[in-house]
Design a protein around this nucleic acid. Structure first.
Length: 270
DNA sequence: GAAGACCTGCTA
DNA sequence: TAGCAGGTCTTC
């Protein structure tokens, strides 16, 4: 279920666990559609004996920078996640792949819904806008001139900003007091700035709280240690249709925008 | 745009 | 049992 903050949390924890600098000494792929652009046997062969130089991230993509010409790009999609084990390999029920690393560390990729994807590519993922965690106001405004569509659809568009998903899109629009169906081309400069600040604010809050801050108890995101976070800040819009807006008291409404469930306050968001 | 496809597990 | 899920791609 990861959006940018969840992916960033996993990245930081894998780095802290010392994944960088380790060599891939074994590869097991248990789901034939996991990898692109080649089938598991060839994919495994290309990963074997490479060293993870650095673990990077852009938007929702994890980028394993490897020695050699190709990098391993991982997208967790809806239910993907990593965890580590040591010693003799014991596979979990939903493990779709495992990388054995030097020093006896095993990196498991768990993904119940099998939506996650591993890619081998020369560079970074394509067709991504600026990363939502580090985007500058200037970049954000530049992106704005390129598209005119409903704000909710715009925020979910990874070519516009990389990393924002359904929860953080709703939270950012609530924070900015902007209606999800409002066309991006109608925003005043002040409103564009409000939206920029809101996006950065909710994404940073998510990262700070280890990606769990916006869970409302229903979410099942767990970090590397299987923890869902010791404290959480309640979401203000996502998943709260029918509840009173914490700002004006009017019940929040649920609509569908860009095929995604969208919750907003008809009183506050214009 | 909208709808379907990809998948499984959880909740109502 | 039906409906829903925090993502993205393909095809009208």
């Amino acid at each position: 279920m990861p959006e940018l903050p969840e992916v960033e949390t996993i990245r930081r924890q894998l780095c802290a666990a010392g994944i960088e600098g380790r060599k891939i000494t074994g590869v097991e792929i248990n789901w034939y559609r996991l990898c692109e652009p080649v089938a598991p046997p060839e994919f495994s062969k290309r990963l074997l004996h490479r060293t993870i130089k650095k673990l990077d991230r852009h938007g929702k993509w994890l980028i394993f920078q490897l020695t050699g010409k190709e990098n391993l790009l991982v997208h967790l999609r809806m239910t993907g996640g990593f965890y580590l084990s040591t010693g003799r390999l014991k596979k979990g029920q939903h493990d779709r792949a495992v990388l054995k690393l030097s020093g006896g560390l095993n990196l498991h990729f768990r993904d119940p819904r099998k939506f996650g994807r591993w890619k081998l590519a020369a560079g970074a993922p394509e067709k991504l806008g600026p990363d939502a965690l580090t985007v500058t106001k200037k970049e954000f405004f530049e992106q704005f001139t390129k598209k005119n569509k409903a704000l909710k659809a715009l925020l979910l568009d990874q070519e516009f900003i990389a990393g924002v998903g359904n929860i953080y899109a709703d939270e950012a629009l609530f924070e900015a007091k902007l209606h999800p169906l409002r066309k991006s081309g109608t925003l005043t400069p002040t409103e564009r700035e409000q939206l920029y600040r809101a996006v950065v604010k909710v994404i940073r809050a998510g990262v700070k709280n280890k990606g769990t801050s916006l869970g409302d108890g229903q979410g099942n995101f767990t970090d590397l240690n299987g923890e869902s976070g010791g404290y959480r800040v309640k979401v203000k819009a996502y998943g709260r249709a029918g509840e009173p807006c914490e700002s004006c008291g009017i019940p929040l409404e649920k609509i569908t925008v860009a095929q995604r469930t969208t919750v907003f306050c008809p009183g506050c968001q214009k």
